[in-house]
């Protein structure tokens, strides 16, 4: 419980401290072109609100988040591609602002982890199954089968 709440509380405290309890995206920010606006929303969802605990700028009501939202829209209106917008924002605020970090040397472990764990696990499971199957006793010979049947029959 505190788990979630701690974050919630902090997010809220920060939001309140910023003394501007408005809602995240405000009507005056919305672009006229719906396609462009949708791109702005999608990009915003992947950008971190720098002064919040763990919110995207799309969810946050902090003034800094609003500034970033406006910046994203400005760049989009200027004709930037999505990558160019992100590149521009990262060049100004650092990679910390990206909720999905770039793939690179510094994040190789992060991105590779799921694939590596899955691969190692699959190989281990496979090897174990093979090895144990190989170590299993061979099937009975026909003579042994006959003897067992005989013993069982006599036992009845």
């Amino acid at each position: 419980m505190r788990e979630r709440l701690t974050a919630v509380i902090l997010a809220l405290v920060l939001a309140i401290a910023s003394a501007m309890p408005a809602l995240a995206v405000n009507p005056d920010e919305i672009l006229d072109d719906p396609a462009l606006e949708q791109r702005a929303r999608d990009l915003s969802a992947g950008l971190r609100c720098m002064v919040c605990q763990n919110q995207s700028i799309d969810d946050s009501d902090a003034p800094l988040a609003r500034d970033l939202r406006l910046l994203v829209r400005e760049r989009l209106k200027a004709g930037d591609t999505d990558e160019q917008v992100l590149g521009y924002i990262v060049s100004r605020y650092g990679e910390f602002v990206l909720l999905r970090p770039y793939f690179g040397l510094h994040t190789a472990v992060l991105w590779a982890m799921p694939v590596v764990v899955l691969a190692i696990g699959a190989i281990l499971a496979w090897v174990m199954m093979r090895r144990r199957a190989a170590a299993a006793p061979a099937a009975l010979t026909p003579e042994e089968e006959a003897r067992i049947t005989k013993i069982l029959d006599e036992g009845e």
């Binding site: 969802a45 650092g94 990679e95 910390f96 909720l99 510094h106």
Partner: peptide, 13 residues
């Protein structure tokens, strides 16, 4: 570096 790992990462993996 200071990086963030958020919903887009988890959704993707």
């Amino acid at each position: 570096a200071k990086i963030s790992v958020g919903p887009p990462f988890f959704n993707l993996t």
